[in-house]
Design a binder for these strands. Structure first.
Length: 469
DNA sequence: CTATGGCACGGATT
DNA sequence: AATCCGTGCCATAG
């Protein structure tokens, strides 16, 4: 009896927790689907139009004052937090079970605006017009449908102008967009790698002349033609497979590596953006946790009013709706709250990493953070899972990298190898690291090396001569 | 003989 | 309870 009453009055912590947890697990794109699904089945749930902050003209996604402006005034913490805008969606929804198949979602436009945003500072109005035309003419994999000459004619531009814009677009995030096919996309991505290395050169060679053979896995044939060992060809192929994305329009994950295996819905746009406040670069970092939708959710007040007035058999139904809606909203708020505190903690502790690169990542465990922000460790795990974050330097990395214990060491190894003239063996590297107060076994150096895609000392011998100081 | 990569084990982490 | 990570041992390639 009592239990039944409880159930109808308050969902109580079990339902609360269960739903909050499942929401935490979702990336914002998945969350967006979830919200949309909920909106479509629950008439009591209302999506309130977004408002624009009169001061900073950002979109507001919650009731009340603009978070960025109010934080400007009470600028005491090192970091500012807000969630003003939804991120773009780069792939059509994988499964839309709750929405009827009436119309396809307008996917490409979001990608267009996303790219335009990046380029906006480099574009004059003419460029912009052209960029929009190009972006909107891409096919769903992000490739050009029409040859540049056609585009030039259609937009009455010069061919060189078109080429220039194509250059810009293809080098924006996600890299390789607006190329003529997978091969070109891969080559562009290859060029964007910061430092050149033998394996990159080999990969480039393979892509340029033996793309078809690569597709057919004719390793031996490639090796024979390029006069390198088939093992090296294999390595180069693996590198291409692991680090480059032949279909940039589908989704992307920065220049990062292979993420968790077995995850069907691949990579997505960042869930979180960390950036400098444009006004002062030395100032606090700004962290934006993207909202799944623009606007904010609430229980439709009309609905609850109507419910109290009328007294028919529909009341039950409505009450259920209202309750479900309010639960959903509460859980969403809780999710936001957890994400906010999590990011606050992470950015505070790892700001050296964010600003100065991989080497300054300090090893940190999820358990530690959980303790700090006062939640269960599994909560942190869920909050970290399936999320990606864009750093001020433009890289997009999985949020879980904040917990990578070996990243800093791997970075040091990379540097050692890059700087040393004579190829060093793993053992020598291990001793060097030990001198630098990093004690790891020789075997571990080898592991890290292979993770970074660096060849063993023996094979680095001659080819490694070309380094960019 | 040396440098590496594979396999597998134990301990920490999630 | 399941997974990940560092490491030691051993076979093998050079």
């Amino acid at each position: 009896m009592l239990q039944i009453q409880n159930q109808s009055q308050r969902p109580l912590t079990t339902a609360h927790l269960a739903q909050t947890m499942s929401l935490l697990l979702l990336s914002n794109i998945e969350l967006r689907d979830k919200v949309m699904a909920e909106l479509s089945v629950n008439p009591a749930l209302e999506l309130v139009e977004e408002r624009i902050c009169p001061n900073c003209r950002r979109r507001l996604t919650s009731p009340g004052a603009c978070p960025i402006c109010s934080l400007h005034q009470t600028d005491e913490g090192p970091i500012v937090f807000l969630s003003p805008r939804e991120s773009y969606r780069s792939t059509p929804p994988a499964v839309q079970q709750d929405t009827p198949p009436d119309q396809e979602p307008a996917a490409p436009e979001d990608l267009t605006t996303y790219v335009l945003q990046q380029l906006s500072s480099n574009l004059n109005p003419d460029d912009r017009r052209l960029a929009i035309y190009i972006l909107s003419s891409l096919d769903e994999d992000g490739f050009l449908q029409d040859p540049p000459a056609f585009i030039a004619r259609a937009t009455r531009s010069t061919l060189s102008h078109v080429d220039r814009i194509l250059q810009l677009v293809s080098h924006a995030e996600p890299p390789g967009l607006a190329t003529t096919g997978p091969r070109q996309a891969l080559l562009v991505q290859l060029d964007l790698f910061p430092q050149d290395s033998p394996i990159l050169q080999l990969a480039r060679g393979i892509l340029e002349t033996f793309f078809r053979e690569l597709g057919h896995r004719e390793i031996e044939k490639i090796a024979a033609n390029l006069e390198v060992s088939s093992n090296r060809v294999r390595e180069a192929a693996a590198f291409i497979h692991d680090n480059l994305n032949p279909y940039p329009g589908r989704a992307f994950w920065g220049s990062g590596r292979q993420p968790q295996k077995g995850d069907p819905n691949v990579y997505h746009s960042p869930d979180i953006l960390i950036s400098h406040n444009s006004s002062d670069v030395s100032g606090p970092l700004m962290v934006e946790i993207f909202a799944p939708v623009s606007g904010w959710l609430r229980v439709n007040p009309m609905f609850s009013q109507a419910k109290s007035k009328t007294n028919n058999n529909q009341t039950d139904e409505w009450a259920k709706h209202i309750e479900r809606a309010s639960l959903f909203v509460k859980c969403l708020q809780q999710r936001n709250n957890t994400m906010r505190r999590l990011m606050q903690s992470l950015v505070t502790q790892q700001n050296q990493f964010i600003l100065n690169g991989d080497r300054h990542l300090i090893p940190i465990t999820r358990a530690k953070v959980a303790k700090e922000i006062g939640v269960h460790e599994s909560t942190v795990s869920r909050a970290v899972a399936h999320k990606s974050v864009a750093l001020p330097d433009g890289r997009i990395i999985p949020l879980s990298r904040f917990f990578d214990r070996s990243l800093a060491i791997r970075d040091r190894i990379k540097e050692i190898i890059k700087n040393e003239s004579r190829p060093l063996t793993d053992d020598q590297i291990a001793t060097l690291l030990r001198q630098a107060n990093v004690c790891i076994a020789r075997r571990t150096v080898a592991k890290y090396r292979s993770i970074e895609g660096i060849l063993p000392a023996r094979l680095r011998h001659r080819k490694g001569a070309r380094t960019i100081e």
